[in-house]
């Protein structure tokens, strides 16, 4: 897992254990507002564009899933 991603996540929502949680969206740990912040931070940090079509629960339910999305988008860009 990328340290930068974990840092961003902990900065946005400090009370959640992002290394183990796999239901970030389903259990409402991340709401629409957190997602708005998160997308802005991820795009800046990883120099990617996260299109709206990628904003689905499956891509944001765990840090691992987010990392998979980031890696995929970096390659596609």
């Amino acid at each position: 897992m990328d340290e930068r991603l974990l840092e961003i996540l902990e900065d946005i929502q400090p009370e959640v254990d992002f290394e183990t949680c796999t239901t970030l969206i389903d259990d409402h740990y991340l709401d629409s507002l957190s997602i708005i912040s998160l997308v802005a931070e991820l795009e800046e940090e990883f120099d990617i564009t996260i299109p709206t079509v990628e904003i689905i629960p499956d891509n944001f339910n765990s840090a691992e899933k987010m990392w998979e999305m980031i890696t995929r988008l970096s390659e596609e860009d």
Binding site: D11, I12, Q13, S32, L33, S34, I36, S37, V39, A40, E41, E43, E44, I50, T52, I55
Partner: peptide, 24 residues
């Protein structure tokens, strides 16, 4: 909310207003 100007606004506002009110 994911348009470029809004993302910029969110990043700046979050630094000043925090995690809740920044993206709000």
């Amino acid at each position: 909310s994911m348009s470029k100007p809004m993302k910029k606004l969110t990043t700046q506002a979050r630094k000043k207003l925090g995690n809740h009110y920044g993206p709000l």
